[in-house]
């Protein structure tokens, strides 16, 4: 085909450039669609299972849409006040963790980014490596501690716990983000007689919104999906979160497969919306934080 369209000198015409560009674009989109099967196919299957009856889920040969297609599983979840409470708790806790983590991490990251102080390297090593202790071994001492502090079965107990998990990453990312912002910005504030905190709040924070959004989304996800501590640190179902609600459907004798799938579909929707809403900031923010992290 190229033989007939390329002119004598071998220089592609404008029309050819456009056509080649279009072909490339089509190929790219085709590749993206094909590759999308990797992340999406299992999710499609999850979605499909949530509309089946429990018996059909394991039928062989498997079918995407069955004759008993129904929204029963969704109705069962959305009409159960206990399960709705799980969703409410998850929002509340994940939201609070996100806001508080950002507030605390921003202050710490400012210190790491703008000051030299004794023990900086040690604190850095500790902040990174505490993430590596298997949570399961911390469970019992941690539980004792939370009970001793009077935080057992309370929202603050869970919120502070998740902050401990999310802070290290948030600090690392925010430090990297602040490092990308020129120091001259805050020096100018200091020259005008302002204190460091003024520089942070008046100058750095307003231009750091993308970085904070990216850290925020990550933090939200961690708090939203955590299971082990959410279960151990709560006593009554009115304090529990969606992952526990899902686990409660895995009974001793049988699983409520369709409801499990429906509940995780429902659980993922808010996070998906959050991502869609924030993704422009998110992508932009990650870059700056990560480059210098």
């Amino acid at each position: 085909m190229s033989a007939t369209t390329v002119d004598a000198a071998g220089v592609p015409t404008r029309e050819q450039v456009v056509r080649r560009h279009k072909a490339k674009k089509a190929a790219l989109i085709a590749a993206l669609v094909v590759c999308a099967a990797f992340p999406a196919a299992p999710i499609v299957w999850m979605l499909s299972s949530s509309f089946k009856t429990n018996g059909e889920i394991f039928a062989y040969p498997p079918r995407l849409v069955t004759s008993n297609f129904s929204f029963d599983a969704y109705v069962a979840i959305l009409t159960d006040p206990e399960k709705l409470r799980f969703f409410f708790n998850s929002y509340l806790i994940a939201g609070a963790v996100t806001v508080l983590t950002l507030a605390v991490a921003v202050l710490a990251a400012y210190a790491f980014s703008r000051f030299e102080f004794p023990g900086k390297r040690l604190i850095n090593v500790v902040v990174i490596s505490v993430q590596a202790v298997p949570p399961i071994t911390l469970l019992i001492p941690y539980f004792g501690l939370v009970v001793a502090l009077g935080l057992y079965n309370t929202y603050p107990g869970l919120i502070l716990t998740y902050m401990v998990f999310t802070l290290p990453y948030a600090i690392i990312m925010m430090t990297g983000y602040f490092n990308t912002l020129p120091r001259e910005l805050d020096e100018a504030v200091k020259v005008d007689g302002g204190r460091p905190i003024t520089a942070l709040f008046r100058v750095l924070l307003p231009i750091s919104v993308p970085g904070m959004v990216s850290v925020g989304v990550y933090t939200f996800m961690i708090a939203w999906n955590e299971y082990l501590f959410a279960l151990t640190l709560t006593r009554t179902n009115d304090m529990r979160t969606v992952p526990i609600g899902i686990q409660l459907l895995m009974g001793q004798h049988a699983y409520e497969w369709n409801q499990m799938m429906a509940m995780s579909v429902l659980g993922s929707i808010p996070v998906l919306v959050l991502f869609l809403f924030f993704q422009r900031y998110f992508i932009g923010g990650m870059s700056a934080g990560a480059v210098k992290a």
Binding site: P39, S264, G267, S268
Partner: peptide
């Protein structure tokens, strides 16, 4: 679409 797997709790 490509971030979908990230949205689900590990038990699921």
């Amino acid at each position: 679409v490509y971030i979908l797997p990230w949205l689900f709790t590990i038990a699921i």
